[in-house]
């Protein structure tokens, strides 16, 4: 079992390493570099040479990659393109803010979607199922900038409960984000519920029709005990991977929502960095997002292994 987890972990690390190499090569392959970006029109002749020498861009790619990668391992992403800020500091607060937003959306969204999905599955084709399922589809299909705008319209402009535009700095204390945080995480929750709910619903329907649920009924097990003890643990297994993808998507920064609410998260920083051609920041954020995806999926894999006895011993045997 432990050996299996270590194997998964090793595979995850290899993936992250490959991603770092691809990101680095990708940026190398782009025409221009950090200096041409900073100097813009002056990027020629002596000024360019000087800048490159100062930023160490004249050394060959491999040593630069190694320096960059070892820096990341120590938590140091280097300097921004302008050379005035440490990326780690700049990114640090943004990561915290994005995590905060994701945590807010997930802590409501996951239990809610599991609950709704289970109810829809148990009362399949009844009004409750039709209501929840169409509601979830509707929520998913409305683009986030529309739902966000509508929420701002209602809560900020009509009701005046929250300010319409917030200019909280990235390094503010978490509580200061509260008003826009609520609205932003509501929008995200609406977006994510449909995926998980539909997965849970179909899985609950399958499991409730299975031989072992019929057997439990004929063993005289009360209905709700069957649902919680026999059906749900099995029904949630296939949902774990969908949940993991949603979690990774949220933690990777959600650009549109952050922009609409002017929320200082990772996604907005990425947009700003791209428009400002700040390649080192783009590289750093991409690395963080990639590592998050790998990490979350790793956790999901391990979780499925832990929760599914069949998978566990099958994997052990085939090893």
């Amino acid at each position: 079992m432990l050996a299996l987890i270590f194997r998964r972990l090793a595979l995850g690390l290899i993936t992250v390493w490959l991603v770092s190499a691809i990101i680095f090569l990708g940026v190398e392959a782009l025409p221009g570099d950090a200096c041409t970006a900073i100097l813009e029109r002056d990027a020629h002749g002596e000024a360019l040479e000087k800048c490159r020498a100062a930023m160490g861009l004249n050394t060959p790619a491999l040593p630069r990659y190694i320096a960059w990668a070892t820096g990341i391992l120590q938590g140091d992403f280097g300097l921004t393109a302008s050379g005035q800020e440490h990326i780690s500091e700049l990114v640090g607060y943004r990561v915290r803010n994005s995590l905060l937003l994701a945590a807010g959306a997930l802590s409501v969204g996951i239990p809610l979607s599991i609950l709704l999905g289970t109810m829809a599955g148990l009362w399949r084709d009844r009004w409750i199922d039709i209501l929840f399922s169409t509601g979830a589809i509707l929520a998913m299909t409305i683009p986030e900038f529309v739902s966000a705008t509508v929420l701002i319209l209602i809560f900020a402009i009509w009701l005046g409960w929250v300010p319409a535009i917030v200019l909280t700095p990235a390094d503010a204390r978490p509580l200061e984000f509260f008003p826009e945080f609520i609205l932003a995480s509501t929008v995200l929750t609406l977006l994510m519920i449909a995926h998980i709910m539909r997965m849970v619903r179909s899985s609950v329907i399958d499991v409730m029709a299975s031989d072992y649920v019929q057997m439990a009924t004929l063993k005289g097990v009360p209905y709700w005990r069957i649902v919680f003890r026999h059906a749900l643990p099995n029904a949630l297994l296939p949902a774990i991977n969908v949940i993991a993808l949603t979690v990774a998507w949220l933690m990777g920064g959600v650009v549109v929502v952050e922009v609409v609410f002017n929320y200082p998260g990772l996604g907005r920083l990425l947009v700003d960095a791209i428009s400002g051609r700040d390649l080192p920041v783009v590289q750093a954020i991409t690395m963080i997002v990639a590592a998050t995806y790998v990490g979350v999926n790793l956790v999901a894999d391990i979780l499925s292994l832990l929760l599914n006895p069949r998978l566990r011993s099958h994997q052990m045997r085939s090893r």
Partner: peptide
């Protein structure tokens, strides 16, 4: 094989 709950 299918009538016993796999997770218990």
């Amino acid at each position: 094989g299918q009538a016993l709950t796999p997770t218990l």
